[in-house]
Design a protein around this nucleic acid. Structure first.
Lengths: 212, 212
DNA sequence: GTCTATACATGGATAGAC
DNA sequence: GTCTATCCATGTATAGAC
């Protein structure tokens, strides 16, 4: 078998094991078994389990971002973004293709070799989210008075948190998404205000910004 | 040694190991070593590693919520809540006393024995957050048009996500908290609008709510 | 009732076979 | 260059000593 083939199999198997077994049960043995290759190949091809996981993170994050990118590109309002988030969440419940990021995030807390790759994987998402937020909030006071990059980072981290929460309390996670949708609706209202109210809001915001 | 003593040691050691070593490296051996007791005692006192972790989760969550409760009780505005969140985040960077919830959340995804305990531990936080949000948002349109319990769940899950994110990208997490503070300031502005603008906002919200 | 010694499974890593 | 056989550390669990 070609080197590229085996590597690819191991990368895919690493992601699958990570989502299905969790970081605690993800080992060279379990991944190799899933890939259908010998256990030693993990070390031959990647040097260590951590390096395999780091590579798998890059591989998987690129794949998933590419998968969702076209749909994200069509989002033109905050309400649509929340609809997308909910749909993506539903897809994740079935397939769990982003869940591996939660597992890596947990693993990276204490295994420093995983941190850069996990951060880089998340950055792919953050970049996309930032683009969408920039577009969606451009016409709103929110876009004017918040840091879009920081907001994108908060959204990405929060989404992973919610995905993890889904695993222990599905109905609770559902309620959380519902509340966020209501909140998004509230922000959207700011855009639909009449000109007088709009100016009042912006005026207050400017005062507030100067004060702090 | 009394049974209660050994159990207490194991519970504390489980939390410490979970935060310092992560779920992947938390085993009967590592926890017992930290506790300074024999490894087999984990199984004698708790039956299995998962049950020990579940018990430790209850134990730790109660402790931490009790630790922060007095300060949460003094929060009277959304801005103050964000100041508290940032302060708690800083404390966590140093001590990492809530980090174990992130590790358990990751572990619970695939080890169903952990899910109920983790969910229950989070619920202690959610309950407190809900109280605070109810108080803080009572005078705001946000309180009127969102489900406070769902919002509290979203906040708790998002906070855990941000704590995990901090572990792989501290400056990114800082930017995320900064953006959320700006966002909170924006919501606070709604409360400071003049009566005319207030009514315009509420009117739009009512229309919006009826439509959806 | 409390704990220790021991059995056996799984994991990481590599020397050397093909 | 690719893979297998094997070593030793670490993991879970329990039989039986105190």
């Amino acid at each position: 078998m070609s080197s590229a083939d085996t590597k690819e199999k191991l990368l895919a198997a690493a992601l699958q094991t990570l989502t299905e077994q969790g970081i605690a049960k993800t080992s060279a043995r379990t991944v190799a078994a899933t890939a259908g290759v010998a256990q030693g190949l993990v070390f031959y091809h990647f040097g260590s389990v951590a390096e395999l996981l780091a590579a798998a993170c890059r591989y998987g994050a690129e794949q998933r971002v590419a998968h969702y990118r076209p749909r994200l590109a069509q989002v033109t309002s905050l309400a649509e973004l929340l609809v997308f988030a909910r749909a993506m969440h539903e897809e994740e419940k079935a397939g769990g293709h982003v869940a591996f990021l939660g597992q890596l995030l947990a693993g990276a807390q204490t295994q420093s070799a995983l941190a850069p790759a996990t951060s880089a994987g998340l950055d792919l998402w953050i970049e996309e989210i930032e683009k969408v937020l920039g577009r969606v909030l451009a016409s709103s006071p929110v876009g004017e008075f918040t840091d879009p990059e920081g907001l994108a980072r908060a959204v990405a981290a929060a989404f992973i948190g919610l995905e993890l929460y889904e695993g222990v309390d599905p109905s609770g996670a559902d309620a959380a998404f519902g509340a966020l949708e209501q909140l998004a609706g509230l922000v959207a209202v700011l855009e639909e205000l009449g000109p007088v109210a709009q100016r009042a809001v912006r005026h207050q915001l400017r005062r507030k910004t100067q004060r702090s």
